[in-house]
Amino acid sequence: MEGTEIVEDEGILRPMKCELNHLTMPDGSAMFMQGDTAVVAGIYGPVEARVQKMMYDKASIEVVYTPIKGPPCVDDRMREQIIKETCEAALIATLHPGTAICINVQELQDSGGLLACTVNAACLALINSGLSMKFMIGAVNCMIEKDSQKLILDPDTTQIQEAKATFTFIFDSSKKDLVSCQTTGRFTEKEFLYSFDKCKEASQCVFQFFRSIVTKYATRI
């Protein structure tokens, strides 16, 4: 596939693949794969906002997440909210007052770490759309294994079944601080902070990958 890049960073994270300008109609689009988890994201914006959602001082950000099967459910609402709030933190919404920025995400396959994958795809699509951002956002998923208490970065579906706790951290690219966080299961404070540190380190790989993708596409323009 043209424009595909694989980063196998010493097996820390599953290999990432990305294709920008995957769709023709959106202002920015990206197909992003992390291991076998795949997502397509498309951005329309700034476009005219619906009257109820219009804000006079900044752009309203709308996120539509479409699952692979069935109608969107309450779980998807929550995912949409996280993507929306995270992208809102990264975007400079005040540059486009009275408009809307629509982020559409379509799940293609879920083999673990879906939330991290959607956020990364949304970020790449935003980069591709050329909207001004304060920083990039990179999401890393990790888990703690039930028996061995071992930390596994970016686990797949079979590994997640053995998890006692899973974490999804979303970092910003400038200060590497925490933008969003979601957890499942029970864990100690030590485990949480350890996972936080490890994911922070791993987020470097994600940002490195984003940069390599941008450079790759920039040379062709």
Binding site: E85, L178, V179, S180, T183, T188, F192
Partner: peptide, 17 residues
């Protein structure tokens, strides 16, 4: 008790450790 069972943050300004 001594354990955590949820840390939720959705967007907003990034926070340090």
């Amino acid at each position: 008790g001594e354990e955590l069972c949820g840390v939720y943050k959705a967007g907003g300004i990034p926070i340090s450790q």
